[in-house]
Design a protein around this nucleic acid. Structure first.
Length: 429
RNA sequence: GGAGAGGUGGCCGAGCGGUCGAAGGCGCCGCCCUGCUAAGGCGGUGUGCCCUGAAUUGGGCACCGUGGGUUCGAAUCCCACCCUCUCCGCCA
């Protein structure tokens, strides 16, 4: 959601920002609606003022027994009310139109976001670790299916495509990864652990920007709940309609939750294996930040996500998403891409964004400045810290041994009952 | 799912047709008093929008769960919806 005052004051800047998103100039129509709406609003206010005055007069006249005067005043208010009804209906219509337009517009990109079409134009920031390709370099599903502990056919029986059944050591590894991540983000990085609902109401999805435009990507229950596509939604919406003290910022939350995505636009993409599932686990980080420090907070958050990959000994690189690849709610996004030797590619495993006040405006999340009056919108950030299913893939593929077994990285062993290796000799646990 | 109660300002809690943006208390902020502390005194303390302005200036409008309605006038009356709580049922 954009600030109408900003659009009024700097329509050219605003249109330039929308142009980077591939949109035609929006300000002429918005400002036309805004002008007309405000004109009607002023008329309405004047009529309301007069009505309030007249009603007071009527009260006094009735008390004083001046029936005639009271009758005349009542007539005046009756006329006024008829006109007010018309003006009010028109104003509401314009307001609705304006809200709909504004709600559908993407966030303005940060100045340092590179221009580009798609993920091919993303810009490398740094990389960590040395990608190596074991021989043989099996894909994760080959490793998992070899012992029967990762089973897609079994999952298809229950739920169709884009689901998996994990068993034994693979299931244990998956659980270990999730625990490890949420422990790291909460204990070491200061994010408060939260266990939120993942069945959500319309308002929550609207607040973070999935609605009204991207409902197709989501699952919905028959009684109107949305299945959370990421804990970003419940965690960020904890701040909806709240006003916090300036000194309370930043507020940092983390949660390990299931995520559900319809993957409507991904037909035929990544159909093999666990890379793209309708249901997956993710450790999410959300920061509620002061506007002055939200860019620093973004860098910090990326570091918190990177820490996971470093401790898991997984080579990765950090890229800045280009204009065409940056999500609608974000001002700027860093992706972490982990090396997957089975595919011989870097693949996204975390995405960290600063949305500025875009989501905060939608959900009315504010803080009270220590100095001065009024309230200001907070900035909200979200990042994966990190996707559990994809981390599982990365661990299997990067730490696979020639015999098909997989070495457990040091940091994970406490969560694996001390085990150093799994899938040894193709023997199920 | 059945029966009942209720949704008012940061919190508690009055108000039940006009003078209510809303008593009172708590909390918070400022000042005063008390040679410390506690107690006490005075004042202030919601949000959004519109007009105006150099301004944290002046003025106005709206908001007492949400949306409608009745009325000259609604926090107060009526209707619908949402939510919360209690008991019963079911259940991890």
């Amino acid at each position: 959601m954009h600030d109408l005052k900003w659009i009024r004051e700097q329509p050219d800047t605003f249109d330039a920002a929308m142009a980077r998103r591939g949109l035609a100039p929006q300000s002429p129509r918005l400002l036309e609606l805004d002008r007309e709406r405000r004109r009607l609003h002023q008329d309405l206010q004047e009529m309301q003022t007069r009505r309030n005055e007249a009603s007071k007069e009527i009260g006094q006249q009735m008390k004083a027994g001046e029936q005639d005067a009271a009758g005349r005043a009542k007539q005046e208010v009756a006329d006024l009310k008829r006109r007010m009804g018309e003006v009010e209906a028109r104003e509401q219509q314009l307001q609705g139109e304006l809200d709909d337009l504004l709600a559908g517009l993407p966030n303005a990109l940060a100045d340092d976001v590179p221009d580009g079409e798609d993920d091919g134009d993303n810009v490398l920031v740094r990389s960590w670790g040395t990608p190596h390709t074991p021989d043989p370099a099996k894909q994760h599903f080959e490793l998992g299916e070899a012992t029967g502990e990762m089973d897609f056919e079994l999952a298809a029986k229950l739920s169709g495509s884009r689901f998996v059944v994990m068993k034994g050591e693979v299931a244990r590894l998956h659980r270990a990864l999730g625990q490890f991540m949420v422990d790291l983000q909460s204990n070491a990085h200061g994010y408060q652990e939260v266990n939120p609902p993942v069945l959500l109401r319309d308002d929550a999805l609207y607040g973070t920007g999935q609605l009204p435009k991207f409902g197709d990507d989501l699952f919905r229950t028959t009684n109107g709940f949305w299945l959370s596509p990421t804990a970003e939604v419940p965690l960020t919406n904890l701040m909806a309609d709240e006003i916090v003290a300036e000194g309370d910022l930043p507020i940092r939350y983390t949660a390990l939750t299931l995520c559900f995505r319809a993957e409507a636009g991904a037909a035929g993409k990544d159909t093999r294996g666990m890379l793209r599932q309708h249901q997956f686990e993710k450790c999410e980080m959300v920061s509620i930040a002061h506007p002055d420090t939200s860019w620093d907070e973004l860098e910090r958050m990326v570091g918190c996500a990177e820490a996971v990959l470093q401790k898991l000994e997984l080579p990765y690189r950090v890229v800045t998403l280009c204009s065409g690849d940056t999500g609608a709610a974000a001002r700027k996004t860093y992706d972490l891409e982990v090396w997957l030797p089975g595919q011989g590619l870097y693949r996204e495993i975390s995405s960290c964004s600063n949305t500025g006040d875009y989501q905060a405006r939608r959900m009315k999340a504010r803080y009270r400045p220590a100095e001065g009056k009024g309230t200001r919108f907070v900035h909200t950030l979200n990042g994966s810290g990190i996707a559990v299913g994809r981390a599982l893939i990365a661990v299997l593929e990067n730490h696979q041994q020639p015999d098909g077994s997989v070495r457990i990285p040091e940091a994970l062993r406490p969560y694996m009952g001390g085990r150093e290796t799994i899938l040894a000799g193709g023997t199920p646990a």
